[in-house]
């Protein structure tokens, strides 16, 4: 049987979910018997998101133009998209800037008002991606197949979510162990 093509993607999040993924420790060795890591900031050197991905874990909310391009790409090229962690599911901490209503006040606050010296709002089209007005949870931009809350989701929760997929089953996302936020 062919191995499952597994990808992990890092959008607007702190990378904690990926750290938790690495906390799978020795199970990672078992994992690669089932799955081929085709794209991941912690498991692959590949720069472009490949075609025909079976399962993709998406960490982070959709906060800038790059995130948005990426998630549309991911959705198109992946069979099962998993919102991985609270930032992907709720926008979480990155979403706290949404109360300021718009990207402009956020940048002004961050780079001008709070600057000690050389106050300047970064503006390098093509290098620094433009912020979206609101940080959105992934499912508000594209369809999501499985939601795995947690900040971060524990390694056990990650395992319990993806392991059934390798067998062609769906994980049971119920109960404190699986869906507690935070």
């Amino acid at each position: 049987m062919d191995k499952i093509k597994l990808a992990t993607v890092w959008l607007a999040g702190c990378s904690g979910c990926h750290m938790s993924f690495l906390d799978l420790d020795e199970w990672l060795i078992e994992l690669v018997q089932w799955a081929e890591i085709v794209y991941s900031p912690v498991g692959s050197d590949r720069k472009d998101y490949p075609e025909n991905v079976d399962v993709c874990l998406v960490e982070g909310g959709v906060a800038n133009e790059d995130n948005k391009t990426m998630i549309l790409n991911v959705r198109q090229r992946s069979k099962i998209l998993i919102s991985f962690g609270d930032c992907a599911v709720t926008a979480n901490v990155p979403g706290m800037r949404n109360m300021l209503e718009g990207s402009e006040p956020v940048l002004r606050r961050g780079y001008s008002e709070l600057a000690d010296n050389t106050a300047q709002v970064p503006d390098e089209p093509g290098i620094v991606p433009r912020l979206l007005d609101q940080v959105l949870p992934v499912h508000q931009v594209v369809a999501v197949d499985i939601f795995m809350p947690g900040c971060p989701p524990s390694a056990d929760r990650i395992k319990a979510t993806i392991e059934p997929l390798f067998r062609g089953d769906r994980p049971q996302m119920v109960g404190r162990d699986m869906i507690k936020f935070g």
């Binding site: 508000q140 931009v141 939601f147």
Partner: peptide, 8 residues
């Protein structure tokens, strides 16, 4: 623009 979809 692509559609904004609600989760399933």
């Amino acid at each position: 623009q692509p559609r904004v979809e609600l989760g399933r």
